[in-house]
Design a protein around this nucleic acid. Structure first.
Lengths: 225, 225
DNA sequence: CTAGATTTTGAAAAAATCCTGAAAATCAGC
DNA sequence: GCTGATTTTCAGGATTTTTTCAAAATCTAG
């Protein structure tokens, strides 16, 4: 399996490449958009990792280009940004998964493995967490294969959770990711409770497990471990 | 943690330095443009506070210089002006945060804390001290690999300790770091005893060592030597 | 060694947070 | 404009954490 790592922070790039090489992947690296495009036009990669916070142009454009050039390559976004728009945008442009910095290399490895398995075994572009599957292109969610009906807020909430697994997410940041654009509504975050309650209920009613754990005083964590 | 305070109003400079020293930061001060550049070229500071209304040259130029000189230092602008332009300008030149006069010292402290946290903990995978491992991205703490469950205050306390190893931390500064946001006047610091007791107990129960040493009459020191 | 100050400890009061159910407000489609 | 769905607010009770308090243990100065 051959990978391309597009990352301008040399230290991070090195540690990623080193780790993935140890995992028996064949790795190449690029530090800029142009280099990434050039390399990907010559070689065929099973999976491309892209840091969309790369300087010198929007990373999202690179994703569009890469996806056009190499429809077969899996695409994983690495981002320092914490913005829902960027993620949805990236996923809509055809990325298969994404990872928010900082991340564990083992987590990256797991994502790559999952992506390659999906890519080569069923070709579905979905985010899978245990019995929950999210299809961002359709904004559809299934539990044990049965589709459940989520409201927009619940869907955003779930997406924010599953893309930040095992992390403690503050109610403030959750509110931002549900609310969309309004950033100065710090007065009352109680509506979070309702959305979490409703999401939990729908997942449980569909026979799923409640992975949403409250972390007292800190927020919530979507934990499958 | 080492800070440089660039402020020409002596009274304000004194009160800032005095307060931040109480918070157990190591502080140095500069009263002019040239002094700031000189000091910053000799020492490496974790964070530099700049009053951009400094006489003898535009403070924004100083920011540009400082940022060129020391890309690693965090940079917080202090200004009497309340203009959006100045703020944007400063941030565009590479400042990390911005504070408008007059401000509460506790507010300044909060900004510094947040900046240092971003600077040092984002991108860092874990903080390891002997058998204790802290994963800031997950707010998780393990002792000998076993996760222990800390409350918010205990977690903040531990984080403050491990990032200031071998230094005596006053009860006042510890209280500040636990309290987080509201920080006016803390008449009674006894609650620290409870948090320290609980943190010690949880670490010991997990088979760890108690590195929290009381320094009679001075405060506490997290010492592994 | 003693006296006074400081730290430790346990327990109880106070405060904060989370969960739930239901009502009020808002939004979207017709 | 109406109607149903969605979002937000609100109040209670349950739970957890934080803070207070007082007694016991420990420490330092003199």
């Amino acid at each position: 399996m051959k990978l391309l790592v597009v990352e301008d922070e040399i230290a991070l790039q090195r540690s990623i490449v080193s780790y993935l090489t140890d995992m028996d992947y064949i790795c190449e690296a690029a530090t800029s958009f142009s280099e990434a495009l050039m390399k990907s036009s010559v070689h065929e990669y099973d999976c491309i990792l892209v840091d969309i916070t790369l300087p010198g142009g929007s990373g999202l454009d690179l994703i569009r280009e890469l996806k056009q050039q190499h429809k077969e390559s899996g695409l994983i976004i690495i981002s320092a940004k914490d913005s829902l728009d960027d993620r949805l945008h990236g996923l809509n442009l055809g990325a298969d998964d994404y990872l928010t910095k900082p991340f564990h290399l083992s987590e990256l490895n797991a994502r790559i493995k999952a992506l390659l398995r999906r890519k080569y075994f069923n070709g579905m572009q979905t985010i899978d967490v245990e019995e929950i599957t999210i299809d961002p292109s359709r904004s559809a969610v299934t539990v044990h294969g049965n589709e459940i009906n989520l409201t927009k807020s619940e869907y955003r909430l779930l997406l924010y959770f599953v893309t930040n697994r095992e992390r403690v997410l503050s109610k403030e940041s959750i509110a931002e990711h549900i609310g969309g654009d309004q950033s100065d509504m710090l007065d009352n975050l109680d509506f979070i409770y309702s959305h979490i309650k409703n999401l939990r209920k729908k997942v449980l009613d569909a026979g799923g497990t409640d992975y949403v754990k409250a972390v007292y005083g800190m927020g919530y964590k979507f934990s499958t471990v």
